[in-house]
Design a binder for these strands. Sequence first.
DNA 1: CGTGGCTCCTGTTAGC
DNA 2: TGCTAACAGGAGCCAC
Length: 272
Amino acid sequence: MPELPEVEATRRSFAADIAAAQILAVRLGKPLRWPLGCPPQDLVGQTVQQVRRRGKYLLLDLNAGLLLLHLGMSGSLRFAPSFPAPGAHDHFDLTTSQGTLRLHDPRRFGAVVAAAGEDDPRAQKLLGGLGMEPLDPASFTWERFAAGLHASRAPIKAVLLAGKLVVGVGNIYASEVLFASRIHPATPACAIRPVKARRLFAAIGQVMARAVEQGGTTLRDFSNAQGMAGHFQHAVQVYGRAGQPCHRCGQPIDLLRQGQRSTYYCPRCQKI
DNA sequence: CGTGGCTCCTGTTAGC
DNA sequence: TGCTAACAGGAGCCAC
């Protein structure tokens, strides 16, 4: 579910509400992808200073540490004054003086990890190799992007998903930005012509920004921490549209599988 | 070292 | 209707 726009929409939907809140209790459900890494009691009494995002990770800055949250494939957060008893897929509750943050994650690919700070090896292991932030002009520059493309012979779709060059682009948005820039998903990154590379660079920034404005994409069940669905699914051009006509040329959208993931593209508009 | 494949887990859907 | 298999929005790890 959650790619950068969904994670950012989630962040914005509760960051102000939880700021300066004191942690009163921590409840863990079934194991997530990684263990929390400290006794839950160690978090009690700490204060949540702010909520940041790095790639698809949410970073809760505590007065004496850092809490990293990842929503994996099926995770979602909710922030509310109180909750009913936890259901089978509610695996983490952070009760604070200003409300409770609850992680719901049926597939449990998500994670909550405590670290001393961003330089803590536990945090570095997760954040260390991450690429540029597409919504941050200071980070996401054409020069670095072009150099990154030049350095890889892997299919551009795989390069986008890997998150080493640019973060936050998942399976939905990879299809969308490649369609927007008219690049075939299997094109080796280093073989993309400058004109198309320029278009891709621009499309990543624009599509991600637009999707955040729209509150993310709700294909099935995504909602932000206030329970509100996103709207970007109405702007989706190719993802999930196999067999339906291309919005640009009318040709049926096709689907190809790359590394167990499907990519949607227009065979006429997106040539290698 | 770069690259591609496998894997974790559970719910939903397509197909017989 | 019921069973089975394929597939799903992520990404670390392991072999080549």
